[in-house]
Design a protein around this nucleic acid. Structure first.
Length: 260
DNA sequence: ATGTCGTAACGTTTACGA
């Protein structure tokens, strides 16, 4: 079961490029972030034509997450628990039943948090605290599950081409890295690092200052697996090449293959 | 040159978020 996560930076501007990638990568599941669309305006038909079931959790202009799945999506839940006043659309989960195992899928768009310090950084850390609570619940189920998406966290200096410029940024500050580590250390496997070590692997290149041409990237899109999901892991890769295409997102997809 | 995008709106340009 091939499960991808992809921050598409706006479905309205990206649906053609997204379809091209879906057609060739053929993921069974695609967890999307930054659809920047309300549910009613999401072009679900173009994905349904390709055999995908579609569940969205959108809002106007900003944020928004979605799940595309060739298998039926069961028990869909929208919104990260823990704060009834939070109106930002950043979390969606659902279950798919594979041939060998059922997998709980959680798609997330973690707050950017800049400028830091400040209220946006406080919101990021509070959101990560709620994420930790949900993460612990998932682990307690002792079943295959994953939390995947744009974490807006550079876990280590090796995950940035120029770590020194990110030192005081909300994506790399010690508080963000610590909160990320605390979640992983509850018992998750970070899928990419389970298979690939060393520097030079990125999922995001800023549109500005020719970052892509200079390979000035950062690794901020992650898939965290419960032990029962990690036992099924057979592959994890970054589809870097599509950043070269016309009208690319500033992120590229990263995916796992699970024997589920 | 605070360098690029995507989105929305009191829109042919500006503001915001990233």
């Amino acid at each position: 079961m091939k499960i991808a996560t992809f921050n598409i930076n706006g479905i309205k501007a990206r649906h053609a490029a997204l379809c091209d990638w879906l057609d060739e990568a053929q993921p069974d599941v695609a967890l999307l972030q930054e659809i920047k669309s309300v549910d009613e305006n999401f072009p679900r038909e173009v994905f349904e034509e390709r055999g995908y079931n579609v569940e969205t959790h959108g809002q106007k202009s900003f944020n928004g997450v979605a799940i595309l799945s060739k298998l039926p999506l069961e028990d869909v839940r929208r919104g990260l628990p823990g704060d009834e006043t939070d109106e930002q659309a950043r979390w969606i989960e659902a279950t798919v039943v594979g041939e060998h195992a059922a997998v709980r899928l959680c798609g997330l768009y973690l707050p950017n948090g800049n400028p830091a310090p400040g209220p946006k950084f406080d919101y990021k850390l509070a959101w990560m605290d709620r994420l930790k609570t949900r993460a612990a619940e998932l682990l307690a189920q002792e079943e295959p599950a994953l939390m995947a998406g744009d974490y807006n966290v550079i876990p280590q200096d090796a995950d940035a081409a120029r770590p020194e410029v990110w030192q005081d940024d909300a994506l790399a500050r010690p508080e963000s890295r610590r909160a990320f580590r605390e979640i992983v250390n509850l018992g998750f496997t970070e899928a990419f690092r389970a298979r690939t070590l060393g520097p030079g692997h990125y999922t995001f290149w800023d549109y500005q200052a020719a970052a892509w041409d200079r390979n000035d990237g950062i690794r901020i899109d992650h898939l965290l697996l419960t032990p029962q999901a990690a036992d099924l892991l057979t592959d994890c890769r970054i589809d870097k090449d599509i950043r070269n295409r016309p009208k690319p997102s500033d992120h590229v997809p990263i995916w796992v293959d699970l024997a589920a």
